[in-house]
């Protein structure tokens, strides 16, 4: 069992420290965001399992030859309160410490996930109440003005000058809301606005909030682990790419790009102010244009070729192996 514990510890190290920075920079994520998303979910789950599994297996090692029998023996002794038997089994305090660590870590991760879920649901309910009371559904009145022809793309309009678009997921699709601000309506043409709404609807349809919630929870549970922050950022970036792809199915690339360019907080102001800002950032290049560094924008401006099928298969297989590996080890051995 000791080699197994070492293997799990090594796996946890690779999954939690080595791999995440590589994946969050990997070029393939812009070519197939969903493949990268799958890999992230697999890395996080397998990482969590091996992080808990390593101390668990080490702590159980004196109790039996296999995980199954060791766990049974340990629980029997615990229920019987037979602590004298521990000496006979050569149980070292380090083993007890490892067992406690595994249990606490497991509980910590699960409870943080649960708490995040409950808190997010409560703050969504509150936000939904506020939106319903403060906004006008765009289809109902002439609130949308020239955008009234949005048709079934119902969006709620809040009266605020900041250009904003966001979505608020509900447990059922019918309770989900897409919200746009007056400031955004005033800036965008109907086609651009409809691209924005399609982007937000893709978030809701693909349930992106569920994909990001676990990463929010891991970050909250282990904020000192840089990986949890990187993972959270990377997964958020991927959901935006996926939503862009969803919007592009029914809208032109130009409409989406224009809506992104115009919905920045300084849109509509004179460019002189923002010009100074780029120079301050040292990001100018050639004829006074800022280099676009955001991967999401780059792939909209110059669409990369789709990932070859063989590479997609490789990513799917790698994700499946990552998930099956630690699980099989813990269940079978």
């Amino acid at each position: 069992m000791i080699p197994l514990a070492v293997f799990l510890a090594a796996l946890a190290l690779v999954l939690a420290v080595v791999l995440p920075p590589l994946i969050s920079r990997a070029r393939f994520r812009t070519r197939s965001p969903w493949a990268a998303m799958l890999l992230w979910q697999a890395v996080a789950l397998a990482g969590g399992l091996s992080l808990i599994g390593a101390p668990l297996v080490y702590g159980l090692s004196p109790f039996g030859a296999t995980l199954h029998t060791a766990l049974a023996t340990m629980l029997e002794l615990l229920v019987a309160g037979d602590f004298a038997a521990l000496v006979g089994l050569h149980v070292h305090p380090a083993h007890v410490f490892a067992l406690c660590l595994a249990v606490l870590l497991g509980l910590h991760l699960l409870l943080t996930l649960l708490r995040t879920y409950v808190r997010v649901l409560a703050s969504r309910r509150r936000h939904r109440d506020l939106v319903r009371l403060l906004s006008t559904p765009a289809d109902r009145t002439d609130a949308a003005g020239p955008h009234a022809e949005l048709g079934e793309d119902v969006a709620h309009v809040i009266e605020h000058e900041a250009p904003l678009a966001y979505c608020l997921p509900g447990r059922t699709g019918g309770r989900s809301l897409t919200v746009v601000s007056r400031g955004l309506l005033d800036q965008l043409s109907p086609e651009e606005l409809s691209a924005v709404v399609a982007h937000e609807r893709t978030h809701l349809q693909q349930r992106h909030h569920l994909l990001t919630m676990a990463f929010d929870a891991w970050y909250r549970a282990l904020p000192w682990l840089p990986t949890t922050r990187h993972g959270r950022e990377a997964v958020l970036e991927l959901t935006e790419m996926l939503a862009d792809d969803g919007a592009l199915r029914g809208h032109s690339r130009t409409a989406l790009l224009r809506s992104l360019a115009l919905s920045s907080s300084e849109a509509g102001e004179d460019d002189a102010g923002t010009g100074a800002a780029h120079r301050a950032q040292g990001a100018t290049s050639g004829a006074g244009g800022t280099v676009i560094t955001t991967a999401r924008l780059q792939r909209l401006l110059v669409p990369p070729p789709a990932l070859p099928r063989s590479a997609v298969v490789a990513v799917v297989l790698a994700s499946a192996t990552l998930l099956a590996g630690p699980t099989a080890v813990l269940l079978v051995v």
């Binding site: 678009a165 360019a261 919905s263 923002t274 950032q281 676009i292 924008l297």
Partner: peptide, 12 residues
């Protein structure tokens, strides 16, 4: 939707 993009990039 907007948050991931800096003002400088949006201007560019």
């Amino acid at each position: 939707f907007i948050g991931g993009i800096s003002d400088a990039e949006a201007a560019a």
